[in-house]
Every structure is written in structure tokens, then in C-alpha cells.
């Protein structure tokens, strides 16, 4: 972790200027990368005993994720596509289009 802080972190911060990076010591505890997201959630990854490169990968992972829950389950509508736009075809209705013969 110390090697990561000294070698990789300045570069990471420079390449991602939109991300606020703050480092605080945690004496006697495992090193953790904690991402705070705009939607109010946070994501923490323990990086104990990792090489600087591995830690950088974790940092990139936290940076690239949206902060949403990973598994929402079907109840939360995991596979639902949401859109602001109304559908082009509209809601199906039986009175337009071809006649349906019984």
C-alpha cells in the first residue's frame, strides 16, 4: 500500500481530476479503498497484501463503477430498461393496425 501511495496514486489522481482523492492513515487496520458516490452510496474494497498494480486495478474498478448495488434482484427490476422517452410505437392497443379475425 505504501508503494502504491508513493508511486501510483499521484498519477491516478492526475489522470482522474474529477475524483476527489483523500488519504487518511488507519493505524492497526487493513488498508481500504473507499469510494463515495454521488448517489449517496459507498463502495469499500480491502486491499490488504496487494501489489501496487493490483491496488491500482481496484482503484480503477471503484472509479469506474456507478455506485449502484450490484445485484438488485428481480424485485428491484434488474432487467428493466428505463427511458425518459416515450416509446415510438406507443402502448399496444387493439383498435389500430390490422384487423383481427376470429
Amino acid at each position: 500500500m505504501n508503494a502504491f501511495l508513493q508511486t501510483k496514486l499521484p498519477l491516478f489522481a492526475r489522470e482522474n481530476p474529477g475524483v476527489e482523492v483523500s488519504v487518511s492513515p488507519r493505524p492497526g487496520k487493513h488498508p481500504v479503498i473507499r469510494g463515495h458516490f454521488i448517489n449517496g452510496r459507498e463502495k469499500a474494497v480491502c486491499v490488504r497484501n496487494m501489489t501496487p498494480h493490483e491496488i491500482l486495478e481496484k482503484a480503477l474498478y471503484v472509479r469506474s463503477s456507478s455506485g449502484e448495488k450490484l445485484n438488485k434482484g428481480m424485485k428491484a427490476g434488474r432487467n428493466v430498461v428505463r427511458s425518459n422517452n416515450e416509446s415510438v410505437r406507443g402502448v399496444w392497443d387493439p383498435y389500430h393496425g390490422g384487423d383481427f379475425k376470429v
Binding site: R14, P17, E20
Partner: peptide, 17 residues
């Protein structure tokens, strides 16, 4: 107010900026 990210000790990334 639910969240406060304001951290106490900060080594800032503003140095690069």
C-alpha cells in the same frame, strides 16, 4: 443530512491541479 464525505485529514489531489 445522511452523508458527509468531508474527511478530516486530507492529502489533497489539488496539488496536481
Amino acid at each position: 443530512q445522511k452523508r458527509c464525505i468531508a474527511s478530516r485529514r486530507e492529502a489533497s489531489s489539488a496539488a496536481a491541479q
